[in-house]
Design a protein around this nucleic acid. Structure first.
Length: 644
DNA sequence: AGGTTAGTTGGCAAT
DNA sequence: TATTGCCAACTAACC
C-alpha cells in the first residue's frame, strides 16, 4: 500500500451522494460526521452509466437536477462555505484522482441497492483499498437492509409480503429517523488540476431526448467552472414537461402535509384510491422523493406509525392495516428490494431468473451470451403487428381513451396512479397486446420520475402474471374499470383533449358514438387519427384479444417453464407451444450501434432488430422508423407525435 | 388490487 | 289482497 503523502490526525472525508439526496435521516451522512473530519467534500459524480445507459427522459433529469440544487443550498444553509460539488466524470476514474489530490482518508456513502450500483461500488471499494482509503458504506434506502432481509428469509429472494414481514420481525424494530445535522464541516481546498478522463463512447439510450449536442463531459467543473449542478441545456436534453418538482425541501413539505391529514394517513387503502384522479391525485406522490432519497423511507414510516397509533386511540375508527395501508405499501417496496438484492441483474429479466415463469411474449429481449444479461436498447421484432401495437401503446394512440390518457399523462408528467399502471401494464401484456413485460418496463424506466429498478421490474412481473401474482384471468377492461371511478372521464378530457366535448356515455368508447355526434363534438373517430380533429379507432377488438391472451396464458402456465430453464435459453421452448403465435422461425439481429441515415438527415444509431423477410428494415428505438409501406399506421403515429 | 353473464332475491308500485 | 312487471342488489360460475 502506498504511503499517503500527508499525515493528518483528523480524517479528510468525501461524502459521495448518489440516491440519498437529503440531509435528514441519513445514517451514512451521520457516520461521515461522526468521523469528526477536518474537512468534508460533498460530491456527486456524473456517471456515464446513468447519462447514456439508463433510460432517463427529460422529466427525471429535471427532477434529479432539482434534488441536486436543493441539496446544495441546504448544505450551504448549514455552512456558507460548503455546497454540493458536481464533478463531470465517472466515479471509477475520478475518485482515485480526488483521493490523491485532496488527501482523502475516508469515502462514505449510502449502500446502493440496484445491481449496477452494487457492482460499481465493489469496484470502487477495491480501488479505495489499493489507495489506502477507508470505505464506509451504510444501508439507508429501505426499511431494513435488504441483504439482512434475504439472510433472514433463508437466503432466498422475498417473493411474498408474508416472507418480508417474517424476515422483518426477526430483524427487530425499524430504526427511528436521525435528525439532520446542525452544522457541516468546511470543504477542503478544491484542487482540480488533473487530467479530465472522458467516458468511452457508448450507445446513448437517451439520444432521442436530446435536442442539442450533449456537453455532459466537456469540462470537469461544468460551464461556469463552479462544480454546480447542471442544467438540461448542458446535457442537451429537451425541456421537462412535468409539474412535479424534486428536492428535499419539497419532499418534507409534501410528507408533512400528508401526515397532517390524520384520517387520510391512518385509513389509507390503496385499492380504494381513484386512479382517475389527477389534480390532486389520490395517492401520496412521495415515490419519486424516495427514489432520489430526498425523503427518507424511515422518516415517512415512523410518521405514519405515530399517526396510526394516535388515530386508533382517538376513537374515530380503526386504522387500515397492511397490505392495503400506507405501511403495507412501504413493505411491498422492501419486498421488491429483497428480491432484487438476492437476484441482482437477473431480477429484471426473464432469461436466467429461476423465480419467474416463461411466457412466449412478443418482442422479446436479446441476450448477451457472454454475460447472460439482456442487451439494453434492443429487442426482437418477431411480430410486426405487435410492434405497431407496442408503439401505439407507448405514445398513447391505441384508440382506447383510458389507456391513451394514462400513457400521455405518463409521458408528460412522469407519474401515473398505481392502478393506472396496472391498467396499462395488463393491456400491454397478458390482457391485450401480449407484448413482453420487459418492453413495458423499459418505457416506464424512460418516463417515470419515480423509476426504481426493483419496484419497476417487480410490478411488471406482478401485472403480467410472470411472478408474484398468477390470476391471469383478472384482466382490466379499458372501459369498465375507469367507469367505476369516474363516469365522466375527466382524465380523458384532460390528457386526450381531442375528446373533451364527448358525452359521458361515449368518453371511454368514442368509436360507438354516432357519426353526427362525432362531428358535433369536433372529433371524428378514424383509423389512424392522424390530425388534431380525429382520434383513432381502437387498434383491436378488446374482448377478442382478451380471450386470445387468456388461452396463451393458460398454455404457458400448463407448459410450466421458468426463466432459468435450458429450453428457454436455447429456443427449444417453441416445440412445447402451439403454432398460434405467428412468429415464424428465428429472427435475426442487426449489429447494435450501426449508423442508419434517418429521413431528416440525422444519423441514428440502430438499436433494434429485423424480422425475417424484412432484412433491410432496421428500427431505431424511440425515433422514427425507416420508411416501410407495411407500417402506415405507425408512420401516421410518428407524424402525430412530432406535432404534439 | 377484473369483468361478464346468468340466475336469484326482495322491494315496490301498478293493475 | 294477489298477481305481475320492473329493477337494483347480490351471488356463483366462468374466463
Amino acid at each position: 500500500m502506498p504511503a499517503p503523502k500527508f499525515i493528518t490526525n483528523k480524517p479528510r472525508v468525501i461524502y459521495w451522494f448518489r440516491t440519498d439526496l437529503r440531509l435528514h435521516d441519513s445514517p451514512a451522512l451521520r457516520a461521515a460526521l461522526d468521523l469528526n473530519p477536518e474537512c468534508l467534500y460533498p460530491i456527486w459524480t456524473w456517471d456515464p452509466h446513468y447519462v447514456y445507459h439508463a433510460r432517463v427522459g427529460p422529466n427525471r433529469w429535471q427532477y434529479l437536477i432539482d434534488c441536486q440544487n436543493d441539496l446544495s443550498s441546504r448544505i450551504t444553509a448549514l455552512n456558507p462555505k460548503s455546497r454540493l460539488l458536481v464533478l463531470r466524470e465517472g466515479p471509477e476514474t475520478i475518485l482515485p484522482k480526488l483521493w490523491k489530490e485532496w488527501r482523502i482518508s475516508h469515502i462514505v456513502f449510502e449502500k446502493d441497492t440496484d445491481a449496477y450500483g452494487r457492482e460499481r461500488d465493489e469496484k470502487i471499494e477495491r480501488l479505495a483499498k489499493e489507495a489506502g482509503v477507508k470505505v464506509v458504506s451504510i444501508a439507508g434506502r429501505t426499511l431494513w437492509d435488504s441483504d439482512d432481509v434475504v439472510e433472514r428469509n433463508g437466503g432466498k429472494a422475498t417473493m411474498t409480503l408474508a416472507q418480508l414481514q417474517t424476515a422483518g420481525k426477526k430483524l427487530g424494530e425499524i430504526a427511528r429517523p436521525i435528525p439532520p445535522p446542525e452544522t457541516l464541516p468546511n470543504l477542503g481546498e478544491l484542487i482540480l488540476g488533473f487530467a479530465h478522463t472522458q467516458p468511452i463512447a457508448a450507445l446513448d439510450l437517451n439520444a432521442s431526448h436530446r435536442s442539442e449536442a450533449d456537453k455532459s463531459y466537456e469540462t470537469i467543473a461544468g460551464p461556469n467552472g463552479d462544480l454546480g449542478p447542471p442544467t438540461l441545456e448542458e446535457l442537451g436534453i429537451r425541456p421537462a414537461t412535468t409539474r412535479h418538482r424534486g428536492g428535499e425541501t419539497v419532499a418534507l413539505e409534501q410528507m408533512n402535509k400528508i401526515l397532517a391529514d390524520k384520517t387520510y394517513t391512518a385509513t389509507f387503502q390503496k385499492p380504494n384510491t381513484a386512479p382517475t384522479a389527477f389534480e390532486p391525485q389520490a395517492t401520496t406522490l412521495l415515490s419519486p422523493h424516495h427514489h432520489f432519497g430526498s425523503l427518507s423511507i424511515r422518516q415517512f414510516y415512523w410518521g405514519i406509525v405515530d399517526v396510526v397509533e394516535e388515530f386508533n386511540k382517538s376513537g374515530k375508527g380503526k386504522a387500515s392495516v397492511p397490505p392495503t395501508s400506507l405501511i403495507g405499501q412501504l413493505e411491498f417496496r422492501d419486498m421488491y428490494f429483497g428480491a432484487h438484492a438476492k437476484l441482482g441483474y437477473s431480477f429484471s429479466q426473464t432469461i436466467g431468473n429461476p423465480n419467474i415463469r416463461f411466457i412466449p411474449w412478443y418482442l422479446p429481449s436479446v441476450l448477451d451470451d457472454k454475460t447472460g444479461r439482456v442487451i439494453s436498447g434492443t429487442y426482437y421484432i418477431d411480430n410486426q403487428e405487435a410492434e405497431v401495437w407496442f408503439q401505439r401503446w407507448k405514445f398513447g394512440r391505441t384508440g382506447f381513451p383510458w389507456i391513451d390518457a394514462l400513457m400521455r399523462q405518463l409521458r408528460q408528467e412522469g407519474w401515473i396512479h398505481h392502478l393506472g399502471r396496472h391498467a396499462v401494464a395488463s393491456f400491454l401484456t397478458r390482457g391485450g397486446c401480449f407484448v413482453h413485460w420487459e418492453r413495458g418496463a423499459e418505457v416506464f424506466e424512460e418516463w417515470l420520475i419515480d423509476h426504481e429498478t426493483a419496484c419497476n421490474a417487480g410490478n411488471w412481473q406482478w401485472l403480467s402474471c410472470t411472478a408474484f401474482f398468477s390470476q391471469f384471468y383478472r384482466v382490466y377492461s379499458p372501459i369498465a374499470f375507469p367507469k367505476k371511478w369516474d363516469k365522466s372521464g375527466n382524465i380523458v378530457r384532460k390528457y386526450v383533449p381531442e375528446l373533451k366535448d364527448y358525452d359521458d356515455k361515449y368518453i371511454y368508447e368514442p368509436w360507438k358514438a354516432p357519426i353526427a355526434d362525432q362531428r358535433k363534438w369536433g372529433c371524428m373517430i378514424k383509423d389512424d387519427g392522424s390530425d388534431e380533429f380525429t382520434y383513432p379507432k381502437p387498434m383491436f377488438d378488446f374482448s377478442e384479444r382478451r380471450e386470445w391472451c387468456l388461452r396463451k396464458m393458460k398454455e404457458a402456465y400448463d407448459v410450466g417453464l421458468h426463466g432459468n430453464d435450458e429450453k428457454v435459453k436455447d429456443g427449444s421452448w417453441r416445440s412445447l407451444f402451439g403454432d398460434e403465435l405467428g412468429n415464424k422461425g428465428d429472427v435475426k439481429l442487426m449489429s447494435i450501434g450501426d449508423i442508419d441515415a434517418g429521413d431528416n438527415g440525422a444519423e441514428n444509431v440502430v438499436t433494434a432488430v429485423i424480422s425475417p423477410g424484412n432484412e433491410d428494415k432496421g428500427t431505431v428505438i424511440g425515433q422514427k422508423r425507416k420508411a416501410s409501406k407495411s407500417q402506415g399506421t405507425l408512420d401516421g403515429l410518428v407524424k402525430r407525435i412530432k406535432k404534439s
